Amino acid sequence: MDVDGVSVLARGITARGPEGTVFENVDLRVNPGSLAVVCGPGGTGRTSLLLALSGRLRLVAGHVEVSGHVLPAQARAVRRLVLPARLRPGYELEERHRVREAVAERRLISGVPISSIADAFDLLGIDPNASSLVGELAADERLLLAVALTAASAPAGIVVDDVDVGLGATGRSRAWAALRGLAGTGMTVLTSATDPPFGDVEVIPLPAQVTHRPTPTLVLEREEIR
């Protein structure tokens, strides 16, 4: 897999929901092929920032460009470049599906051949039992399955929310190593976590400016059918 990743530039961006400010006056730059981590405690708008950077949440102030595409005017193009592997709410694997059903569904939606999915499994170091329920997989295996199914179509960017949620030290190490490997293909990997991993990552800190998490679904941009 060889990918031309997206770049992301944001200046002074702000989002508000029905309960108030989600995040405010955020500046960031993410280079193509980087592993970037939006980090901070709950309630700081990590998920909402990922939604905004991938063209799925409208901002009230600031400027964002994703590989030259300006948001919100070119949000449709950005949504085609940057795909969600896990982005809560709304973009998660169905836990009641079996692995083979999740694979079949992704092939139907994206049109990728089974060989591309097998290559993505190898890249991320997973080999899930096709008969297993998604919800029965270990948390790190379930996360990496979602990432692999999305990465199989080789998007320019991929979004992975809450990387460290529910993972112990071994699971976190495995997940971050796999995501570093994915970024090594050239793909831009945008993630969120409570704490960033050690090493060569682009950290985007969010301060705890609010004590609640406004519901971003009320301000989501419409997702285009691919």
Score class of each variant (00 low, 15 high):
P155R: 13
L137V: 12
E136V: 11
G181N: 14
E105V: 14
V103C: 08
E136I: 01
T170R: 09
L182W: 13
T150P: 01
D119Y: 01
L149D: 07
P155I: 05
R107S: 04
V134E: 05
D164C: 05
L179F: 01
S110L: 15
G184F: 04
S115M: 10
L143P: 04
V159N: 02
A130I: 08
P155T: 07
A178Q: 04
D161I: 07
A148N: 11
L145N: 06
L144R: 02
L179G: 01
G125S: 09
I117K: 08
S173K: 10
V103M: 12
A138M: 13
T170G: 02
G135S: 10
D140S: 15
A104L: 09
A151K: 04
V112M: 10
A120P: 01
I117G: 07
V103R: 10
A130G: 00
L182E: 13
S153V: 12
A120W: 05
S131K: 11
L182S: 12
A146L: 04
G157C: 12
A118F: 00
A120D: 02
V103W: 14
L108I: 04
S131P: 00
G186R: 13
A169D: 13
A154L: 14
F121L: 05
S153H: 13
G168M: 03
A178S: 14
R172M: 14
T185V: 08
L124D: 11
I158F: 06
A156W: 00
G135H: 09
S131W: 06
T185L: 04
A120L: 04
S115R: 15
